[in-house]
Design a protein around this nucleic acid. Sequence first.
DNA 1: TCACCTGAAATCGTCCGACAATCCTTGGAA
DNA 2: TTCCAAGGATTGTCGGACGATTTCAGGTGA
Lengths: 223, 223
Amino acid sequence: MPKTLAAKSDGSPGVVYRGIVDGLYRGRYVPGQRLVEADLTRDFEVGRGSVREALSRLAAEGLVSMNLHRSATIRSLSRGETRDLVALLEVLNGFAARLAAERVEEANNRKVIAEAYASLADPEVQRDFLRFARARNTFYKTMVAMGANHELARLMPRTNVDLIRVQFRSYATVDDDLRMEDYRAIYEAISEGASRKAETAARNHIRRLGDAIDKLPDAAFNG
Amino acid sequence: MPKTLAAKSDGSPGVVYRGIVDGLYRGRYVPGQRLVEADLTRDFEVGRGSVREALSRLAAEGLVSMNLHRSATIRSLSRGETRDLVALLEVLNGFAARLAAERVEEANNRKVIAEAYASLADPEVQRDFLRFARARNTFYKTMVAMGANHELARLMPRTNVDLIRVQFRSYATVDDDLRMEDYRAIYEAISEGASRKAETAARNHIRRLGDAIDKLPDAAFNG
DNA sequence: TCACCTGAAATCGTCCGACAATCCTTGGAA
DNA sequence: TTCCAAGGATTGTCGGACGATTTCAGGTGA
């Protein structure tokens, strides 16, 4: 990498990008927090240009909002935005689950999704927020990858799933058992190759999540 | 703006961004073409940083692809990518049409969509590729805006609709009359507030578009 | 002639420093 | 207390610089 050694794979902007997303999950950054370019430059030891690029990438994905001439801030969802997002995710996840089910026979898809589900269902994993978040990400990512729709795969990270997960993490949004039940239904439908069933299972899960979020107090939202 | 006057509204990167998208529609840039940063810096008379930011924004939306240490190029869709994209658009547009129909009674939505459709249906407009493209964009944008789902509105521009429209413009993808028939069906369903009907109409339209594209010769694609 | 190697050109990734534009806070004046 | 102006903080943009990487044209040897 330029400037006498730097990042591992993605370059300096990637370091900042991943650092911020990771910091979000770890609670170092919280919704609403300001992200001053100069501070990030110091913290990550990269040029301001790289910080800037990382921020605009994050802004493109909706994770931070950049207001003209004002610091970027970690975005925090209002009730309405959350509802919108959940409605959209219902459609997209349903689509992804359907595609995955249609292609479960190809390659070693069945095995891969089984593994992803297994780690998600591991009680050991479920006890640790961070590990569980990772496992869930892997599960969804696997599902999308199985569908083999590159445009969907390109678009999915540009939704604000991460924000939902972080913003409401302190609330027990959905009863754990019920949630695992949902995942099981999705997984089994995919594994059976039942595309229609997989789609409804995925949609139901998201809808249930939305219902739970609707019941949260105003304090969980911004505006 | 900094540096003694510059752009109108969005700043220098915005100028480059819009310049390239516009150039795409005008045929100045064609799929596969290389976009050298130094050239753009000269053409648009902005700093390389701004060019860079515009390019990465375009890359995030999938309009250009940035290869490491090689010039960015206008992306051109392969057959598979096009199929993926169409399948995704079918879902998203169906969703958008459904939302729009559900909210046709609010504010002056009915009037707005009627106007957008009127300009789309104007034979005068249909004769000019550029004007028609603009009218169609307005129609879709209006539909999405009516739906009032901000997350969908945020995500839609990040699909590659523009690429499809540009890449296959020289082919009469769908018979004009048939195409207008589709738009009419979508518009009427929305206007009636028939959400289910609007969704299927929109999905059918996109599916028909996909079928037509499937029949195009390999020369229309890349790879 | 052709495969292979080498070196220069082209281009990108990144950093740095600078300065205007704008926002925000603070302190004083009415 | 309310209003306003000065100054600090922060962003938006530019230009220059240099290493890293890819690409391509020649040159060399079989």
